[in-house]
Design a protein around this nucleic acid. Structure first.
Lengths: 111, 111
DNA sequence: TTGATTCATAACCATAAGGTTATATATTCG
DNA sequence: CGAATATATAACCTTATGGTTATGAATCAA
């Protein structure tokens, strides 16, 4: 997965509506209407969100008559997950080390 | 972690510059200048990226004289990681089931 | 065939995001 | 003190994002 694709995946995940759709899709394939139902927004807005998810590779669509069935593509999400998981290992290791460092140097956390 | 915080974390991760900074921080605490060094952008642009990471809770800063030391906060990233990991389990399960379904119904993937 | 359903696209708007330059504020060094 | 360093903030610009309404095209059902 190249950098640009990671941009798209994380970008797609940065919106609660889209995360909700992915959550709903974890229960099985849905058509667009049933994906739209939980949200108080216009149908074109839903279409746009689906487009974002699709460009990120997180979903795929299959037309079936006039209905458009949507399913998750686990692979794209998996690679984003891998990215975080990989670095989380290092970050956790940092965490304690940094606490020590700040103790020694006496720096104040101005957060 | 509430929805809004997840928005911020995934949003922060959706930019290659910021992911690069987090990657660099996995090697240890950095001041702002050394974080900025790899990027062909102005210093204020770097400041903005750090602000985004900070609002998402992914980093914390500690002033030390005129330098501002930056460190990762593993916890925020961890929770984003958890979100993906949680759903990835379901999505993977879906993956095979959906393939079967499409086989049976004969639907074409128009992706 | 007519009308309803499902969905996409176009055009538009307001706000956010990511960049810039200019400037300000501490802090450190000579 | 005066100059350089490290960083933040302000103001601005361009493009992206997330929403809207209006419209169109296919499909299905009566």
């Amino acid at each position: 997965m190249n950098q640009n694709q990671l941009d798209l995946v994380f970008g797609a995940l940065s919106d609660a509506t889209r995360r909700g759709m992915l959550a709903q899709l974890s229960g099985g394939v849905c058509n667009v209407s049933s994906l739209a139902k939980p949200y108080a927004m216009s149908q074109p807005a839903v279409s746009k969100h689906l487009r974002v998810l699709e460009r990120a590779g997180l979903i795929e669509r299959t037309r079936h008559g006039r209905e458009n069935f949507v399913r998750v593509n686990a692979k794209a999400a998996q690679e984003a997950s891998n990215w975080i998981t990989h670095y989380t290992k290092f970050w956790k290791a940092q965490f304690d080390a940094v606490e020590d460092y700040l103790q020694k140097t006496g720096a104040k956390n101005e957060h």
